[in-house]
Computed example of a mutant assay.
Amino acid sequence: MAIAADVMRIILMMDRAGLGELAGELYGVLAQGRIIGTSDGSTTELHAESSEQFPAPEQETDDTAYEDAEQIRVTIDFLRTRLVEPVKRLDEAEQIVALLTESKSPVGIYLVDTETGKDTELFSEAARKAAYRLDHLLDPLAQALLRAE
């Protein structure tokens, strides 16, 4: 299956920016295409993200290539899910903890190494800002790419 030129540029940019593993994962998602389940004479789109929708071992499936416009949508959704949503969910969790503990100052959630006792921040302030900036760029990027086609 061919990857759209604009999407391939995004994948190469991710690789050059040190996100090669994530770029490879995106490439794999796009190369696999949509998984179509065919059972009982009906056809439904299945998603690996949901075990309820993922095909049962006995279910017949067919991989269908994404059209170029669909590749852009899948790429934007992938970037948002992998790079933006984790930061937003952590921010929400910290806000909930602050409310539950009735804290008047911000609450941070950290990973703690059980052997050394050293704590590690999940996302630096710079990473958080970058994720929110990326979130604001993704929709305009998708619209620009779709107009260019």
Results as ranks from 00 to 15, higher is better:
105 S>D: 03
123 F>Y: 07
107 V>W: 06
75 T>K: 04
137 L>N: 00
12 L>G: 05
89 R>L: 12
75 T>Q: 03
59 Q>L: 06
58 E>V: 07
88 K>R: 14
126 A>S: 07
17 A>D: 08
119 D>C: 07
16 R>K: 12
133 R>V: 03
106 P>F: 03
23 A>M: 11
108 G>I: 04
79 L>M: 13
79 L>P: 03
137 L>W: 01
17 A>P: 04
110 Y>F: 13
106 P>S: 07
38 T>M: 13
48 A>T: 10
88 K>D: 04
94 E>H: 00
79 L>A: 05
116 T>S: 12
26 L>S: 14
61 T>H: 06
88 K>E: 07
125 E>K: 10
12 L>M: 05
86 P>Q: 01
10 I>Y: 01
18 G>W: 06
80 R>M: 03
42 S>E: 11
43 T>R: 15
75 T>V: 10
76 I>Q: 01
102 E>N: 11
72 I>K: 01
112 V>N: 07
63 D>G: 04
24 G>A: 12
44 T>A: 14
43 T>L: 11
20 G>M: 08
69 A>K: 09
27 Y>P: 08
44 T>F: 14
76 I>C: 05
44 T>V: 15
112 V>D: 07
85 E>M: 07
11 I>N: 01
16 R>M: 08
95 Q>R: 12
14 M>C: 07
82 R>G: 09
44 T>L: 14
74 V>D: 00
139 D>K: 01
